[in-house]
């Protein structure tokens, strides 16, 4: 029983990170109708930035918040420089843009910081959380920080004017312009926020998976699985999907015999395929697929 609870909790810890990435994916998906394949790489490069700050002697928390800010600006810049000019371009052009971004970020990280694995500090250490053997302090921090972040985002979208304007611009850009919303700015804001969320996820998961240019590929896969499970268009669904996927992954790894750590990625893939085959609109989403 204790094992079950413990594994569920550490599943939730990973799941919180998947939830963040899934949410970042869904945010971009809702604002520009495309999935950002480079989302993981953006998070990775932000994490490297934080690592570099700490190497230079900046303490953890100032580095943490400065990174979030810089990631936000970077997201806005990516929108302005790369994707705004492509706004009316066909899907393939967008896809090429995402792939270009992916390759450049991945490559630049390798060029600047090389491809060796680097340790990343834990903000609160890894001692048992409040003396409990069920969950470590870092896992508790992963859950806690992500949930605070997600709750703040919820408040922002639900109860502020800009949040409302962003939702309106995402659902019906043309009508949004007709009530005076500067939709271009909302898209930039969406990019910035998605990038910042990714940075948080990256900095929280980096101590666990270690820092290197390809660290986010697997996490992105789980984030995508979570987003698909949540229906791709529902932010709440993405978060729920992330937590579910995290718990599912951990429980299968623990309790199904003959399944170890190496099953993780195939499992995520199987999950994506299963959801698409059985419940293509996800557990929480509206219609996302094109029936023909």
């Amino acid at each position: 029983m204790e094992l079950l609870i413990g594994q569920t909790l550490s599943g939730l810890a990973n799941g919180a990170i998947y939830a963040c990435i899934a949410l970042a994916l869904v945010m971009i998906y809702k604002t520009i109708d495309h999935l950002n394949i480079a989302q993981g790489e953006m998070a990775m490069i932000s994490t490297f930035f934080a690592w570099q700050l700490m190497e230079w002697g900046v303490p953890y928390w100032p580095a943490f918040f400065l990174t979030i800010f810089v990631a936000f600006c970077g997201g806005v810049a990516i929108d302005r420089v790369l994707f705004r000019p492509l706004a009316k371009a066909p899907v393939l052009t967008h896809l090429a843009g995402f792939v270009a971004l992916f390759m450049i970020l991945n490559s630049v990280a390798g060029l600047v910081w090389d491809f060796t694995i680097k340790p990343f500090p834990y903000p609160f250490g890894t001692s048992p959380f409040l003396g409990s053997s069920l969950i470590s302090t870092h896992q508790a921090a992963m859950i806690g920080i992500s949930m605070v972040l997600l709750f703040l985002l919820y408040l922002f979208f639900q109860f502020t004017r800009i949040g409302l304007a962003m939702r309106a611009a995402a659902t019906l850009p043309e009508s949004a312009r007709l009530v005076g919303i500067r939709t271009g700015r909302m898209v930039s804001l969406g990019w910035g926020m998605a990038s910042a969320i990714g940075a948080v996820a990256g900095m929280l998961i980096a101590p666990v998976v270690f820092l290197e240019p390809n660290m986010m590929a697997g996490i992105l896969l789980y984030g995508f699985a979570a987003a698909v499970l949540g229906g791709l268009s529902s932010p709440a669904g993405a978060v729920a999907g992330g937590l579910l996927v995290g718990v599912f992954e951990n429980l299968v790894g623990t309790f199904v015999p003959g399944v170890g750590h190496e099953i993780k990625l195939p499992l995520a893939l199987a999950l994506i395929i299963a959801v698409l085959a059985l419940k293509p609109n996800g557990l929480f989403g509206r219609k996302i697929t094109q029936r023909v």
């Binding site: 792939v99 270009a100 390759m103 450049i104 490559s107 390798g110 240019p213």
Partner: peptide, 8 residues
């Protein structure tokens, strides 16, 4: 790692 940047 330069080739990734070149391809991008």
């Amino acid at each position: 790692g330069l080739s990734g940047a070149v391809f991008g």
